[in-house]
């Protein structure tokens, strides 16, 4: 399984903070995002509407990354701390 996390505005709009996706559903982060968009028309809209950053195993990545079972993938809006 792949653990998927959402934060901030994204988790609020999806109404969900965390879910598990079968590792067979996505070989990489691009496929995972496509898979999530197909889940529901609302998800397609939310995940397409805004700049979406991603982290794999708690490291920010800005390109497509291969995934394996046990990985943790997070999607979130641009950060605004400080």
């Amino acid at each position: 399984m792949i653990k998927v996390l959402f934060f901030a505005k994204l988790s609020e709009q999806l109404g969900l903070r965390e879910l598990q996706v079968a590792a067979s559903a996505a070989e990489n982060t691009d496929q995972l995002l496509d898979y999530l968009k197909q889940y529901d028309p609302k998800w397609e809209q939310v995940l397409s509407a805004q700049p979406c950053l991603k982290a794999v195993n708690q490291n920010m990545v800005n390109h497509n990354v291969p995934l394996n079972s046990g990985d943790e993938v997070a999607f979130f809006p641009p950060v605004t701390g400080g």
Binding site: A8, E12, P77, V79
Partner: peptide, 26 residues
């Protein structure tokens, strides 16, 4: 500070004077 503001995964949500809430844009 420059790196924290753009890399560290924190998100601010403001409550405005009229009670509405708004996620802060980067």
């Amino acid at each position: 500070m420059d790196y924290l503001k753009t890399q560290a995964p924190f998100w601010k949500k403001e409550t405005m004077a009229d009670g509405q809430t708004k996620w802060v844009d980067a």
